[in-house]
């Protein structure tokens, strides 16, 4: 029936707040990297607001005074771009499409070459920057796959809290045989370590991809491999480059229905 549904399908349900909390959070990850969906959501939210605009009801008397009194004690948020320029840069990178991210990467490489000639001492920093940009491109690609999985009719979401706060989710579509791991507020892996995903079935644990979280604790990663018969998906901390078998206790285990 809906074997390969249009990934844009969720914009409507999102605009009228009809996505369950879990799916809403995950779709918002997608909106950060998909300009087409973001534009459509903006239009459909404006349309939904017209439905709401007809719902006038005089607020209770006294509410205005209470609101005015309350705001007097509330500090307003500061402009993001001024308060934290690096944050703004991160948001801009996050919004680039995969194609543009590649293009940005190429430009960054060219810029890096020039800079290395000029200031040799900066080369280590620049290498890190390139690695970061490549990571962003991979994330953008993963995000569009996330939207594919989310749009499936039989999507299920399993949420697990991390040991030191943070939240991990597995978004899975059994009919599509695909699953995506999404992290929020998850601490970065220790120095020279990475997180590794595992598909766990009766045969044991099979590597299912590496990820690390960004400076906001977020990550999006397609779970690779066959999990048709999997009992669970696990996350461990492994030495950089990953391991063929888990070497530590899992920090998260998602039990699949």
């Amino acid at each position: 029936m809906t074997d390969r549904p249009d990934i844009h399908t969720l914009t409507g349900a999102y605009a009228v707040d009809a996505l369950p909390d879990d799916e809403r959070d995950v779709f918002e990850h997608h909106l950060m990297v998909c300009d087409a969906c973001a534009q459509e959501v903006a239009e459909l939210q404006a349309t939904a607001a017209l439905l709401g605009a007809a719902s006038y009801e005089a607020p209770p008397p006294g509410l205005r005074d209470r609101v005015m009194a309350e705001i007097d004690g509330i500090r307003q948020e500061r402009p993001v771009g001024v308060a934290d320029a690096s944050d703004e840069l991160g948001a801009q990178r996050g919004r680039t499409s995969r194609f543009r991210a590649d293009w940005v990467t190429n430009l960054a490489v060219a810029a890096a070459a020039v800079l290395i000639v000029a200031v040799a001492g900066l080369s280590v920093t620049i290498a890190n920057l390139n690695a970061d940009l490549n990571e962003r491109a991979a994330q953008a690609e993963a995000a569009s796959q996330v939207a594919d999985v989310l749009a499936a009719a039989d999507v299920t979401v399993v949420s697990v809290e991390g040991p030191e706060g943070g939240l991990g989710r597995i978004v899975a579509s059994p009919t599509r045989g695909e699953a995506v791991f999404v992290a929020d507020d998850m601490a970065q892996a220790p120095h020279e370590h990475t997180y590794e995903l595992w598909v766990i079935d009766e045969q044991g644990a099979t590597p299912a991809g590496l990820f690390d979280t960004d400076d906001r604790g977020r990550a999006t990663r397609i779970v690779t491999g066959d999990f048709a018969n999997a009992a669970a998906i696990g996350v461990t901390v492994e030495p950089a480059g990953g391991s063929p078998e888990p070497t530590t206790e899992p920090v998260m285990v998602f039990e699949l229905g």
């Binding site: 029936m1 809906t2 549904p5 844009h8 399908t9 969720l10 914009t11 409507g12 349900a13 605009a15 009228v16 009809a18 534009q39 903006a42 239009e43 459909l44 404006a46 349309t47 939904a48 017209l50 439905l51 749009a151 009719a153 039989d154």
Partner: peptide
Amino acid sequence: PLGTIKTRMRDGLIRLRDAMGVTT
């Protein structure tokens, strides 16, 4: 079915958007 509902929410809003000339 779920898939049909998702689709109807989107194409319903799109039709409303176009009928009311909403732009952003």
